[in-house]
Write a protein that binds this DNA or RNA. Structure first.
Lengths: 228, 228
DNA sequence: TTCATAGTTCGATCGTAACCGAAGCATCGC
DNA sequence: GCGATGCTTCGGTTACGATCGAACTATGAA
């Protein structure tokens, strides 16, 4: 007994519905204010404030003061990975929310996972990159090939810049809706950024879903084909 | 709000200290009775019984009746991975137990992680296998090489048998004590089994730690050298 | 059969934590 | 300065769940 690290603390932090909703919302990658988080948690701001203080004390969140707002974000990528992995686990066990809202289909199609693309489109993109020989898949691991590096340059992504960061270039992330891997890491982030920059897609206001424009949709599907 | 799977449920399940202790104990891989689990949780059998019922209802545990005993195990490997990943996360954040008991050093040296070797020795083994070219590491992924397959046959492990299972052969598992990867998957299991069969090491009674015999220790370190 | 052991179910207690109203700071715009 | 907005702190209520004693069921041993 009393072996190893204390998982009960973080379990309890995630175990409250209001806090879990806030964390899930923050997995969307953008910083949210206390009031916004109170909204997603379905509680008053006072209550949200105490929850946020606990999450921060537990090392899951960081806050940044800006004027009279306080913007909260996940402490780091490890938190995002933990939340996503728990979502994957929960989805696999059928622990779904009671009423899957109307947003659910949009979420399944394309959503943001901390800073990269997830959902059907995320999985499709990785599949296509592997099929075209741009990325090597070994076990759970992913590695960019020379061909891939060239292809990416063609669509305006300089891999050299990405390598300079300490963060791994390619990382596979299990998708809770598709139950298959999609591309995370700095390359995953760069790809999503480029889609947003190009105007192919945009983030929605308070949801994690990503809306593709008709033209962006066409371009995306052409760029990342899947064999019939 | 109300997007995606419900992580609060499993968070809450893990969030109780008594339940967390039971789950951690079961990550040791062997089936434990309700009374034993009450012991590791530091609670009475009545309380343990209700906890175990909740964990089972939540899909984290399965029980098997045998005579008048009920043996509990983790539902599957995914649960073990979740618990281990939470331990890794908690350890990285300094969420350690209040009093690291005397067993802690033994756990850090060598322990069982569901069914494979973890701790210092687990990490050493994987490092050595990679250095010798038996295993290829690409990103987070691991793949057995032809050389590795031959080497393993020499120490009595037939990889062909392992491939027949649906379970992946090599999988990397993040070590909470070392914060580095060790070898999981069916190969990780087979290797640990062979050490136990050979009498190099034995599992301890109620702990996850693995005790190497002096001779086993010598053999292990010789088989898996690390460059100075 | 009777007794012992393993476990669950019931009932009641108790503590903690979630919750919100109200008050208190801090910052912005005027 | 003033009021408005964003957020935190305080105080008190409430509800849920962890806990255990006691009673009950089931299996095994004598």
């Amino acid at each position: 007994m009393k072996e190893g690290p204390d998982i009960a603390q973080i379990g309890a932090l995630i175990g409250d519905p209001a806090r879990a909703n806030m964390l899930a919302a923050l997995t969307g990658g953008r910083a949210l204010t206390a009031t916004e988080l109170a909204g997603v948690g379905g509680i008053t701001v006072q209550t949200a404030s105490t929850h946020l203080a606990k999450l921060e004390a537990g090392g899951l969140l960081t806050q940044r003061k800006q004027g009279r707002h306080r913007y909260f974000t996940l402490a780091d990528e490890a938190v995002a990975r933990l939340i996503e992995s728990m979502m994957g686990f929960a989805a696999g066990r059928g622990h779904l929310r009671h009423r899957p809202g109307p947003k659910e289909p949009a979420l399944r199609k394309a959503r943001i996972c901390y800073d990269h693309l997830a959902g059907d489109y995320g999985v499709r993109m990785l599949d296509s990159l592997i099929a075209s020989g741009s990325i090597d898949a070994v076990g759970d691991g992913l590695a960019l090939t020379e061909k891939g590096e060239g292809d990416l340059k063609c669509i305006g992504i300089d891999v050299g810049d990405l390598r300079s960061s300490r963060r791994p270039l390619c990382r596979s992330c299990l998708d809770w809706s598709e139950r298959r891997a999609h591309l995370a890491g700095s390359l995953g982030k760069a790809l999503l950024s480029s889609f947003l920059d190009k105007g192919w897609a945009r983030r929605t206001a308070e949801s994690r879903s990503i809306m593709f424009s008709p033209e962006g949709d066409r371009q995306f599907l052409m760029l990342f084909p899947v064999e019939a």
